[in-house]
Design a protein around this nucleic acid. Structure first.
Lengths: 247, 247
DNA sequence: GGGGACTAACGTACAGCGTACGGTAGTGTG
DNA sequence: CACACTACCGTACGCTGTACGTTAGTCCCC
């Protein structure tokens, strides 16, 4: 039984087995010093892990190891994984800075939306957090800045309060939907390839429009940003109509 | 030690402890008969579980128990959880039947979109499957019917092939984004309540538009279908512009 | 200085997950 | 009647999140 113990003994190995200055426990550290952890540091590493390895590869154990710390140390600062995720999400959202473009209200609205979209697709894992959101509140906490900006631009454009609120909702839903699609499909060459082969295999008689538009559909799959701006302009066109026509 | 064993012994309990016709193992069945499983039956139960308990509560073990079957029996018909999820997703998407509305091309397009949206919000768990989609292909497999219908309506409206493809992309992204929001927020009273309190707590000086529009924002949170149709009409307005103006 | 309180960091353990692997039993065919 | 086949299943492995209790570094007060 005892010989099932691995070579690297976990506790108090033979002291000074060699005279070299090699630290005695190369793979197993004993205990992290007292001040070695704080919420910001944890979030830094968590976001790095999320960005590099993706949401699926993330785990509390992996994060702790990345920090050089025992797993349960994390629970001193966050009640659990959900709370940590919410904090990470909010921190990313808080990095939004509205682009200070000049121009008409609708041009500035356009820029603001694109900035949000860019923020999302730059952080695929965080976007997924946002979309799944087991914690069910809106992501209002830190997105207030973007939200307020877009709303005030809509008011500036002359929309009534109700229209402004609804138009904001439309923009926000489209932006999230777009970013999700971008992350799931456009950014993955393999997915585009699968799409291509599926579309080529469709029976032309049952799906004539699909078959006819195959090349255009593939094109539109290939650049998410362009697709987003196209749809954004469609929506903005509708919004301008609201603004020009009286209530 | 032995007395930690629960009362209901797991294996071959004393035969005929009572003379009643009660089957000898009420909780543990021995083995399901040969023909008791097939892909359709599995998917039926899986979808019922997903609809009733939600995606988070779903597990292969729970599904097997629901079927009265050993867990590993499922792996005879599906390579794993992912494959099962894809099949469930595709089956739900295949239930889409375009509403045979009369009217102009844009009215019919509107109805077709709304039907997709309704399909999604009727199946929240499946919608989440669709949005997360670890398996990274597009959900083209079974959504072809809706896709072809929408594309042909766009062509009928006079859009060029490229515009039709892009407009379809816009509608599809907005529809998914809307349904996701609906499922995450609108359909949950608690989420709306949290939203309400957050918005009330905002500093009016930093977020004036948000504070002013609080009532309208809350209103627009409360009916997802209405919000969806509002945004849909904005997009359709833009699409009609494309259709009327020449390329 | 010394002892006690506080708490950051941690080790262990548990329930539950997906599923690889091998076993078993019921069926169809020679 | 025997054999091959395979639908169903039991066990086990490695993984997850985290409840609970322990340890050890720090600070304060006597």
């Amino acid at each position: 039984m005892a010989l099932t113990r691995p070579v690297y003994a976990p506790d108090v190995p033979s002291e000074q087995s060699t005279a070299t200055a090699v630290p005695p426990r190369p793979a197993r550290r004993s205990r992290a010093p007292r001040g070695s952890l704080n919420p910001d540091l944890i979030l830094d590493h968590a976001l790095r892990l999320l960005d590099e390895k993706g949401l699926d590869a993330f785990s509390m154990r992996a994060l702790a190891e990345d920090l050089g710390v025992g797993t349960m140390a994390l629970y001193t600062y966050f009640r659990g994984k959900d709370e940590l995720f919410r904090a990470a999400r909010d921190r990313v959202l808080a990095t939004y800075t509205p682009p200070s473009t000049e121009g008409s209200w609708d041009q500035r609205l356009r820029s603001a939306c694109i900035a949000v979209h860019e923020l999302f697709i730059g952080r695929p894992a965080v976007l997924r957090l946002l979309a799944e959101s087991t914690a069910s509140d809106d992501f209002l906490d830190a997105a207030t800045s973007a939200m307020d900006r877009m709303l005030s631009l809509l008011l500036e454009g002359g929309l009534g309060p109700e229209d402004a609120a609804r138009a904001y909702g439309t923009l926000s839903r489209f932006t999230i939907g777009s970013a999700l699609r971008e992350v799931r499909v456009c950014a993955r060459p393999e997915a585009v390839e699968i799409f291509r082969s599926r579309i080529a295999a469709l029976p032309r008689d049952r799906f004539p429009a699909l078959a006819d538009l195959a090349p255009e559909l593939l094109l539109s799959t290939e650049s998410g940003r362009e697709q987003y701006e196209y749809g954004l302009d469609l929506i903005l066109c509708g919004i301008r109509h609201l603004a020009s026509g009286p209530a």
